[in-house]
Design a protein around this nucleic acid. Structure first.
Length: 821
RNA sequence: GCCCGGGUGGCGGAGUUGGUAGACGCGGUCGACUUAAAAUCGACUUCCCCGCAAGGGGAGCGCGAGUUCGAGUCUCGCCCCGGGCACCA
């Protein structure tokens, strides 16, 4: 047989697969059995350049799962698309002068070509791009449905502004006070912006995590992000006797320990309180000073407490005590009510503040056991505490005290049990060009008017100057902005902000199911048949943003009756990142390896194989170029061995062969390999060790010259069959040469459980836990026989000499340990 | 500070319910084939000690304890690396 030439083999099979359209999976017809419908999905790429090795690993993993499941009888949908709107394309466009629509189109074409060259079994009839009007028309449509439901709303708010990208950012896109993308410090601005009311779903987003099979750390990250805290709202009254100032606390049991009261500088009443008093100037200075501080200074800086006294007091509802009101930036406007009761005896931050400004510290709980530090202040973490200095509640255990005080407040209308969340509403407006237009019109007479469905899509106009200037570049497209109001017909303006890209990717997995629907984003019956996604695969960097937003969309669409399920992704697998030369492989780091060179040198099968051989798929891995050759050698060896086998016995694929003669072990080994590979791919997601098992099997063929040609063929044919999910081109080629047909239609090999064991087993023999020898016995030998054989091993006997065996431990099939004295 | 991962040869990593640590691959050394090289095939490749050798002994999975006949794996206390959150009341 000629030498293995990947390029020829791969071109041939890719042509066959395309001609036979084997990657396409039609939607179920009415009445079809839907029980085997399976949806395997990898996160769609962002077309800012070509694919790199991280993508290769991601999509190869999805392809292995897809091919494996197909051969196990599933009808698998495996689609692909492009998350094509967004800042990187636009920023690149500003640099290069190429319009984002053009660069995006070019990048998509390049990526598509790469994907086809990799031989991934993608159903191209379902391909979509979020920047195409056929897609974003429905993004707009969904926005309008959320708007009608009150889940999209507009409000003026202090928002995070990126001065470089010249746009607002969602909370989730601010990392340590810096823009997630360009790393510049974000600023605070007050703007009218669009929000999605994701907070309305906080509890469900939290509770439904129990029903999905996701990595623990992703679940934990989402939980922390939502940040649910149970506690109470306690209403303090200002010394004017009227103004009510509620606070949120998780520790109503410490209410008697409140010795002062603190409001955030952004609190609407902050300036009001000191007006006309001697404190007015100081308070005003402090408020404007903290407003000028950047997020970075405020968040990452020292935790030194600063603040000013307002000269005002509030009354503690539980004991009518007057306590001073301070303004301090350690209280955040965005959480709870923007004001707190300070209990310095039992809260670190309050204590630090009290010490800085000489305020009272009054302990009101005491641990049943344990030390009380200094003046009785300590930060409590245990539930085992008792109330002290707390009026009628003194002596109660803390949990009871908590309940009792909350009820007491509730009865008097001075408070109630409540829940606070860290999660904020999702700010979706962006003052940028390359995004989905928000389909509303601003009319002087009617206010905000949604664009009627029959006028969708609101097309993104072509503008030549899309450089950001703090307002959307769309505002410059005056002809486009000017529109007649759909309500009154009067003169009106289009909304010029575009949507956050994460809106586009929050529903794409639904569109795949019904990608050409012209009347609706998707048909409910179709999505209900396919979804939730059975296996979602992507980078862990999306643990919060994308996954949280997509879950929110699914739940909102369920409530509106458009889908019949509440979670989009039943099983999630997060792959680790690929490092190269010690850094994350990323375009911004300039250390991106494209698969193209390696594919040109060794072929797609080799690159696919090596991308999953690097290590456990959920862990980060270092790419190193030298390793690719090893995967190629393996395929070339398999190729050669099949060639030799063909010379030896011609074509034929034996369904099973007997385990007898010198090749018996090879046959058993083959069955064990089937079991290992199936378990590793199907259950463990251990793609690297499945490959190792196949290496071993091929090695065993070379080590078994005495096996019969049929036995060797059986082992080789099985190896070819098992390698197909990883290296489908060479597998199909060799399978065909051995006399098989359409390997992708062949059922996945089944291991004969009777063949999994060997005729004999090797026992390790230990004396007092130390390995002293090995002994081979029949695998059905009983314990007595095994122990006798173990004692007979020369080196074991030496170590037993002059001792008494007090205990014999036999682990069946593995080891004997003789405990001696 | 809190919450997750991770730490095993020269390197990437195996080690499934506690049971022969180092599978598989990379790299390296030696050998076969070859005029030669490449390719391929074979042997060796954790460290130390004894032995010409076959073989034997000891140590060893970040560090220190513990449980156990037996610990990379379980428990406790630390150290280091990576990630997430971080004044969230």
């Amino acid at each position: 047989m000629e030498r293995y030439d990947a390029a020829t083999v791969e071109a041939r099979w890719q042509a066959i697969w395309e001609r036979e359209r084997i990657f396409e999976t039609a939607n179920p017809a009415p009445g079809d059995d839907t029980s085997r419908l399976t949806y395997v999905l990898e996160m769609l790429p962002y077309p800012s350049g070509v694919l790199h090795m991280g993508h290769v690993k991601n999509y190869t993993m999805g392809d292995v799962v897809t091919l494996y499941r197909r051969r196990n009888g599933d009808r698998v949908m495996h689609p692909m698309g492009y998350d094509a709107f967004g800042l990187p394309a636009e920023n690149a466009a500003i640099r290069t002068g190429q319009h984002p629509a053009e660069s995006t189109r070019a990048n998509i074409a390049a990526i598509r070509a790469q994907m086809k060259r990799m031989g991934w079994s993608i159903d191209w009839t379902r391909e979509l791009s979020t920047s195409e009007p056929e897609y974003y028309r429905w993004t707009q449509w969904i926005f309008l449905r959320l708007y009608e439901a009150g889940l999209a709303y507009r409000k003026a708010a202090v928002v995070k502004w990126c001065p470089v990208d010249q746009t607002v950012l969602a909370n989730e896109q601010v990392i340590d006070g810096r823009c997630e993308r360009c790393k510049s410090e974000v600023e605070a601005r007050t703007l009218e912006q669009w929000f999605f009311r994701i907070t309305a779903y906080a509890d469900r987003l939290l509770d439904d995590l129990a029903g999905v099979t996701w990595p623990d750390r992703v679940v934990t990250m989402q939980r922390n992000w939502i940040g649910r805290s149970e506690g109470a709202e306690v209403v303090f009254r200002l010394d004017d006797g009227e103004t009510e100032l509620p606070v949120f606390t998780t520790r109503p049991d410490t209410l008697f320990g409140a010795t002062f009261f603190v409001m955030a500088p952004e609190h609407p009443l902050a300036l009001e309180l000191a007006r006309g008093s001697e404190h007015e100037r100081e308070v005003a200075d402090y408020v404007s000073h903290t407003a000028a501080k950047s997020e970075v200074e405020r968040a990452a800086g020292e935790k030194d407490k600063t603040g000013v006294f307002t000269g005002r007091y509030v009354v503690n509802p539980v004991n009518d005590e007057r306590i001073p009101v301070w303004i301090a930036d350690y209280v955040l406007m965005g959480y709870g009510t923007g004001a707190i009761m300070a209990v310095p005896a039992h809260d670190e931050r309050d204590l630090e503040f009290a010490r800085t400004f000489g305020l009272d510290v009054r302990p009101v709980v005491r641990p049943r056991e344990g030390k009380v530090v200094e003046d009785g202040a300590y930060v409590s973490r245990t539930a085992d505490e008792v109330l002290i200095n707390s009026g009628d509640f003194t002596g109660a255990a803390a949990p009871e005290g908590r309940r009792a005080i909350t009820e007491w407040l509730e009865r008097r209308g001075r408070g109630r049990a409540t829940v606070a969340y860290r999660l904020r509403d999702w700010l979706l407006s962006r003052q940028r060009y390359w995004g989905c237009p928000i389909p509303v019109v601003h009319c002087g007479a009617c206010g905000i008017v949604p664009v009627p469905d029959d006028q969708l899509p609101v097309l993104l106009p072509h503008v030549d100057d899309y450089a950001p200037r703090g307002r959307s570049p769309l505002a410059a497209a005056e002809d486009w902005v000017r529109v007649s109001c759909p309500g009154c017909g009067g003169e009106a303006q289009r909304e010029t902000d575009t949507m956050d890209t994460f809106v586009d990717s929050s529903w794409y997995y639904l569109r795949y199911a019904d990608p050409h629907n012209q009347r609706a984003p998707f048909d409910r019956e179709v999505v209900d048949a396919w979804l939730p996604v059975d296996q979602y695969i992507g980078g862990v960097e999306h643990a919060i943003l994308h996954l949280l937003y997509a879950r929110f969309f699914t739940k909102a669409l369920q409530d509106l009756g458009y889908v019949g399920f509440s979670e989009p992704f039943q099983n999630l697998f997060t792959q680790g990142m690929i490092y190269y030369q010690g850094a994350k492989m990323a375009k911004s780091k300039g250390n991106v390896i494209s698969p193209d060179e390696h594919v040109a040198e060794y072929g797609a099968d080799t690159v696919r194989l090596y991308s999953l051989f690097l290590g456990p798929p959920d862990q980060d891995a270092e790419w190193f170029d030298g390793g690719v050759a090893g995967s190629f050698r393996f395929l070339a060896r398999l190729w050669r061995l099949v060639g030799e086998s063909l010379q030896e016995m011609g074509v034929g694929i034996p369904p099973a062969v007997a385990a007898d003669g010198p090749g018996a072990e090879l046959v058993r080994n083959t069955h064990r390999t089937i079991a290992r590979v199936s378990n590793d791919i199907g259950r463990r997601f251990a793609f690297n060790t499945a490959e190792s098992a196949l290496h071993e099997l091929v090695g065993a063929v070379m080590d078994s010259p005495d096996a019969t040609p049929q036995q060797r063929r059986f082992a080789l044919a099985t190896a070819v069959s098992l390698i197909q999910p990883y290296a489908p081109h060479i597998a199909c080629e060799l399978w065909e040469r051995m006399g098989g047909e359409r390997l992708w239609d062949e059922p996945w090999p089944a291991a004969d459980s009777a063949m999994l064991g060997s005729a004999t087993v090797t026992y390790a023999v230990q004396v007092n836990g130390k390995l002293r020898g090995e002994v081979e016995v029949a695998s059905d030998a009983d314990e007595t026989t095994v122990v006798a054989a173990a004692r007979g091993v020369t080196n074991v006997a030496v170590h037993l000499d002059g001792t008494t065996v007090v205990k014999e431990i036999v682990v069946p099939g593995r080891l004997v340990n003789l405990v001696v004295r």
